[in-house]
Design a protein around this nucleic acid. Structure first.
Length: 132
DNA sequence: TTTCTTACA
DNA sequence: TGTAAGGA
């Protein structure tokens, strides 16, 4: 199991979260209503919070203590989310680039194999198998 | 027992 | 934001 999955597992009922964050259930429910968090629900409609939810609540709490209002916090969380996604995109682009580089390397290797006795393919022959 | 929603002296 | 009511 990956770390990201582990951190997003719905695990804690609100009572545990109140002790973890020292926020009241009232506050936690209010922040949810304000769109700051979105905990999962059980079949019985009870909230279940993940590690990420708890971290987010702690983040919200610290912002509140610094005098930032709900609207401001919503913006900050939204922006940090956007930054997160932008980073993800950048990583993806980077991986795709190395995929291309890898393909080029494989091409060269196939066209000019070091293996003795192997007859090199011409670029034209090779290209018929690797076009993109 | 715990949590849920709604509503307000 | 606290708290009461009434149900799950």
């Amino acid at each position: 199991m990956r770390d990201a999955e582990r951190r997003n597992m719905p695990l804690f009922p609100i009572g545990i979260v109140t002790r973890l964050t020292e926020l009241t259930p009232r506050q936690i429910r209010y922040y949810e209503k304000q769109g700051l968090i979105y905990p999962a629900r059980t079949k019985g409609n009870q909230r279940l919070f993940s590690f990420n939810d708890v971290d987010r609540l702690l983040q919200i709490k610290s912002y509140l203590e610094k005098g930032i209002n709900i609207a401001g916090i919503r913006e900050m969380l939204k922006q940090s989310q956007e930054i997160k996604e932008a980073r993800k995109e950048a990583e993806k682009a980077k991986r795709e680039l190395s995929e291309r580089e890898l393909r080029r390397m494989v091409k060269r290797q196939l066209i000019y194999p070091d293996r003795p006795g192997k007859i090199p393919l011409t670029h034209g022959e090779f290209s018929r198998f690797f076009r993109h």
